[in-house]
Computed example of a mutant assay.
Amino acid sequence: MAMSKQGKRRREVTSYCDWMSQLPPELHNRSLFMLAIPGSHDSMSYDLDINSSILEPARLKILSKICCARRTVNRWAVTQEETIAKQLDAGVRYFDMRIARKPNDTNPTRLFFYHGLYTRTDVETVLKVIHDWAEKHPKEIIILALSHFKEMEERLHIHLIKFIKTLFGARLFLNTEVPTLKICWDKGRNIIVSYDYPAIHHIELWSKITYFYGNSMDPTKVESVLRQALEKSRPSNCFFVCGLNLTLPEDVRILRYILRLCDNLKKVIQRSLPRLLQWVKEQAARTPVNIVASDLVTRDDFVPSIIKLNIHKS
């Protein structure tokens, strides 16, 4: 009995900053497609610029010059509270990063992230932060999902990809091999970049990662859609995301939410996340999960709960 308890303690992750290196040895040769990996949805939304123009929803674009409209969008667009570095320290290893170019920017190649509004910090600055963190934590595999490119001409894709390849260099895991922890460690490659732009083909870049989400503000509907996707549509030989995030309506129904003066998306998420997290624990016992992404990833024991799903697999 004492030996059993000691073995169990050895399997527990004690530092979420370096949790991958603490996984049981029997998981080191397992495909990353089969591990449970905590991820953040709209990862850069903590950095939204209240003074920027509105990108979405489309119905509010014409109100960009009105401060209260921008503030309303901001209240319902912020899904994360901590910086990328702090999310990494907390154990997040997948990042949903949506990129756009600001109109009339004096810098012809500068890009920003966005979610409703543009971010204050540009793309290259944030990628450098991730690079520096990856250097200090060589056994932690980071997955970057770059997508939703707005106002980006071909030349900007070429510039961004060149920057990514130069910055991360030999740390980029190529799309020609199935990643496992051991292979990544042996090769010294701990950055995987998914680039959702079909016209681009580079062995250093991975194609779009399937993202399942409920497309609803109702946790019951989110659970139902995700359950069906995990039971019928999940892939077995590539990354896929189970998104616990809530989604605002794109039609006039959005007014039911954004006109609530004393509410915001973070409060709604905080009320629903414990329930969704309990659901994914129960669902993972029936169907495999891979990346599990959420809003407010540093709250409600999200990261530890997802990582523990791996211990149950070993």
Rank of each mutant, 00 (worst) to 15 (best):
N175H: 09
L296K: 03
D89Q: 00
L226K: 00
E151Y: 09
Q80M: 09
S53G: 12
L248A: 09
E153D: 01
T106S: 12
A170F: 14
T14D: 11
T106A: 04
S194F: 02
Q283G: 04
W279Y: 15
H157M: 04
H157P: 02
I84E: 03
T83C: 01
E231Q: 10
R260W: 10
D105K: 09
C242S: 05
D49W: 13
I130S: 00
F112C: 03
E81R: 04
I311S: 08
M97G: 02
D301T: 00
R120W: 08
E250A: 13
T287I: 13
A145V: 06
V297D: 01
I50A: 14
R189Y: 08
I203L: 15
E231D: 05
N237W: 11
Q283H: 15
I99Y: 08
S236V: 11
A36E: 02
K165N: 08
I142A: 04
R286F: 10
G188D: 04
M152A: 01
R299W: 02
R260L: 14
L261F: 14
F95Y: 02
A134N: 07
M217D: 14
E82V: 11
L172W: 12
L230W: 02
E82S: 10
P288T: 05
I269Y: 06
R275T: 06
Y16H: 01
I291V: 07
V78R: 11
L181R: 01
I192A: 00
R253S: 08
L244D: 01
I84T: 08
E223S: 09
I254Q: 13
R9I: 13
D122W: 12
P108S: 15
F302Y: 07
F239S: 03
V289H: 07
I99A: 08
S40Q: 01
R227T: 09
L246G: 10
N310I: 07
K187E: 05
T14H: 04
L261V: 11
T79P: 09
A85R: 14
T220K: 14
H131E: 10
F302C: 00
Y195W: 01
R155D: 03
Q228D: 12
E204K: 05
S52V: 04
D300H: 05
D263Y: 03
K182W: 07
A36S: 11
E177D: 11
N29R: 12
R171L: 04
V193D: 01
F163L: 13
K182S: 07
N264A: 05
L276D: 14
R234H: 12
S64L: 01
R70I: 00
L261D: 08
S4C: 14
N29C: 04
V92A: 00
P38S: 05
L27T: 03
T180I: 02
A36C: 08
P274E: 06
A170N: 13
T176E: 10
A85L: 10
Y257W: 10
T119F: 06
A284Q: 02
W185R: 00
I143W: 04
L146I: 03
S4H: 13
M3C: 15
P219V: 01
P25F: 10
S272Q: 10
K8H: 13
E282W: 15
L23A: 14
L181G: 05
I183S: 07
R271C: 15
I143Q: 02
T83V: 01
D42N: 12
H312A: 15
S216W: 11
P25Q: 12
D301S: 03
P198D: 09
K182Y: 09
L296T: 07
E282S: 13
H115T: 02
K313D: 06
K162G: 09
